[in-house]
Design a binder for these strands. Sequence first.
DNA 1: ATGGGGCTGCTTTTT
DNA 2: GCAGCCCCAT
Length: 816
Amino acid sequence: MERNEKFLKLKRALFDKCYAHLNDMQKEAVYTVNGPLLILAGAGSGKTTVLVNRVVFLIKYGNAYYDNRIPEFVDDEYIFEMERALASPDKSDAEQMLPDFAANPCPPYRVLAITFTNKAANEIKTRLSSALDDPDMANDVWAGTFHSVCMRILRVNCEKIGYKKEFTIYDADDTKKAVSNAMKRCYLDEKQFPIKTVIAEISRAKERLISPSLYSDEYASDYRKSKIARVYEEYQRTLRESNAMDFDDIIVNTVELFKRNPDILDYYQRKFKYICVDEYQDTNSAQFVLTSMLAEGFRNIMVVGDDDQSIYKFRGATIENILGFDKEFDDSKVIKLEQNYRSTATILDAANAVIANNKGRHKKQLWTDGDVGEKIIVRCLSDQNIEAKDIVDTIYREVANGKRKYKDFAILYRVNSQSNSIERAFAKSAIPYRMLGGTRFSDRKEIRDVVAYLQLVANHNDRERLLRIINEPRRKIGEKTLDAVSQIAAEQNCSMFEIIENASQYTALSRSAGTLEDFARLIKRLTAVAQSQTLPDLFDAVLNLSGYRAMLEAAGEEEKDRLDNLDEFKSSIIEYVSKTDEPTLIGFLEENALVADVDRYDESADAVVMMTIHSAKGLEFPIVVIPGFEDGIFPGIQNIVGNPDDMEEERRLAYVALTRAKEKIYILHTKSRLLYGQTQFNPVSRFVTEIPEKYIEKEEPFAPWEADLNGGSRPKVYIQNGMSVSASKSRGYSSPKSPWDSPVSQPKITPAQPIFNKKEGVGAKFVPGDRVLHMTFGEGEVLSVRPMGADTLYEVMFDKVGIKKLMATYAKLKKI
DNA sequence: ATGGGGCTGCTTTTT
DNA sequence: GCAGCCCCAT
């Protein structure tokens, strides 16, 4: 007996020794593998580290730490061995013993780790493969976003719920078009029923797993909602007809699949012995139901999250999931991670003070044993342009004196439109910068068009994609013809494509039967190509046989950029083919739909980064600059007049912003601000006043031109106080365009400019004359380098294909 | 059928 | 301030 107890004690001591790089709470989280576990992980508390370590732990050792069984091999000699390993200064002596203690280690393919973003999923995958010695093992773990995990299940099982295997995915834009069409068919006026509201309402219903018929029943007595119910029903019907799903459907249909097929659910319940869910505060109820269903088998579910960082209520996330987890799983264990490894004590204390004003939260207090650090700088500037110049100048000074690199800085703002003035200021300076959240590469028309062709080739029933490209390039297939086709398709209860294929059989289509059938033949021909040739070949076939390339070439110089973009898109296809084991059209389309461009951003580039606070969640930067920290902007006006819950969400957003910073924060606000064509006069944000004075240093702006521009004669034009501005009200009699009403005349020479005289973007990797290699174009010579917006535009003379213009972010050029 | 000019609207957004 | 979209003129 004595020996057994000694063994267990020593075993745990050995684990503790090997996991000494984790704090006690983190270790606890890693060791606790069985049963429901809620980890409340404050910002910067090593959440991902815990998650990865825990997955590795259960793959290597299973329930080793808490298992009380005594292995047969334990004898006095073994105990002696353990004691020696424990005392040894060499940690690897202890590490070598750990595998002996493994208790039901879990095969990697039985672990499911769900995240919200591809970025997070990729990070987990990379860290797993370096932590597990065998890279194959890491690949076997089911690590992915909710959507990618569900897609993996649906691709195998979708026929059970009436979808064909090649179903396609509708993104936000396709959804908008499809809903808009559904509204037309229901005779709903988009003026009375703004499409945004309708889409949000439908999405909200789906997130709560409310089907069109349930929705219709529930709101039968509500005039507006019963109208929306009709649209919802019609939209859902078209999706079915199109053999397509929108993003919400991917989750909803997986739940539906499980509900209707207990055997399939049972299979996955048995398969996934361990389930981990990251960012649990962002889950909606459909996702909650999904994970709960899967976890019912083994009940080994771990969720990690931070209720204080829940900032997605507006898109259906329900904070109740995390607040109520310990009630849903009554035997759950709760672990709080409050030690912060990211920020200075000053930053943490400030953030704690702000978030403490919220009522509905699990109490947490971040702390660090690190430095106090610098105070938070608060500056008041006169307007948004001066504010932007102040940012430029601040960054320039810190970089010039050698202390900082450009990439140490992040500009985090509340609304995207704040980026305009800042981007202008950066563009005039020589500071390299990247902006997240602009127009995405894959949102460009030509890319969407060619993707629509590919989607239609993969799935002939895809109505939205068919409508998008049937007359692109022009084929003289007009709206009336398509209405007729749609009509017949509805009557015959089949897809539009099937009607088009056999157009000559329908008298209503007699006039355009020829062109319609030509189009069907084109798609069928491309389908044959898809079956017999490679994806890049298919891509070329689409552009050539459809006449799309000819159309762009005919337009000449004007559409040159589009052709370049398409070439660029081809290289992303080639990249997909080369990195994927079994590349398929469906696989490519799926990746294209579920993986955003943002994931391709090159993080190593030395450039200042600009983004909204929302997109900064999960990231960290040495220095964070928060412009527009004003009542009216942040918190936004809607949330000041709105209900108190919205204010709490806004405060959480402030908390997220502050806790992104490792070392230093600049808070900026202005006396007047031109936004959405309106001048506002906002007081400093209430969140700033919630930060105790002792953490703040009010500082005069660096900008030496401030006095000149502001001090003198510029008259102030009051429109309304920012607090009560209502953008729509003052329209119509907008003030005349007086010279002083337009943005402060941009001085041609800023103090910054003589200092950095730029021509070639400082962040640029190449200079004219460099030889570069491109995936599709081959070798070439860089002719010019031009900073363009958030990116750099290269003009390259390729040996084989001549001059091309390429964006740095997408072009993946290599120097040779 | 198509393109240009005016009108409107406008948090936050990943998948 | 600006983009996206609707409507009207060609």
